[in-house]
Design a protein around this nucleic acid. Structure first.
Lengths: 100, 100
DNA sequence: AATGTATATCGGAAATTCCCGATATACCAA
DNA sequence: TTGGTATATCGGGAATTTCCGATATACATT
């Protein structure tokens, strides 16, 4: 786990917002409820709508978060669902308390 | 407290090292012991020697860490001593657990 | 006052990040 | 197979960060 890579992933307002939105998918992405549940997280299109940036930028941001280990992705049909990796935040919290 | 500013400050290998060195000044900066104690932290020159970067770069990095609230500085004579702001790390750890 | 030392600030070249539009890939439906 | 939708990747202009050398500022000593 590369500390610098994690902090870089967190050094962007939009990426922090995405992580925050993914804490409560039902609340922040109500539109997805009709098409799919939230079992595997939220699909890129929904996140893009809320972020107000282009599809390519949001897709790239999600890859950055995933490479840092902060989110996990699941492919279902033509959709990719992203969800938080809560374990990573717990480890990061401990790491800041003990290692940094 | 600006989250993005804090994470940007932590997104650099040298700055993470400096923060880590400042956890144990006696161990990491033994040379300073003769001239001054560690009551107010470690002076810029000592940190620069260990970092192996130029004086201007290290001074700038310390300002970045200070603006993020991660270190505190004390001016004594012609020296500026920097020490960790432990409270900030505790708050950051909690913030990652609860807010992010 | 003049000189020396410690730190801060300035100006800039190179590298990286931000965010875009265009295009490629993957899957689904008719 | 053809066309439509969802996501990923590519290429790049603009902004930011990295790190440097030069210079400015602050303090101490003589």
């Amino acid at each position: 786990m590369d500390h610098v890579e994690i902090f870089k992933a967190l050094s962007n307002k939009t990426r922090l917002q995405i992580l925050n939105w993914l804490k409560e998918p039902e609340l922040n992405f109500p539109e997805q409820k009709q098409h799919a549940g939230f079992d595997h997280g939220v699909c890129v299109g929904q996140i893009q709508l809320k972020a107000g940036l282009t599809q390519s930028t949001v897709s790239e941001y999600l890859v950055i978060l995933q490479r840092a280990g902060l989110v996990k992705s699941t492919r279902v049909g033509q959709w990719t669902y992203y969800q938080r990796n809560e374990e990573a935040f717990e480890i990061l919290s401990q790491m800041i308390r003990a290692e940094i």
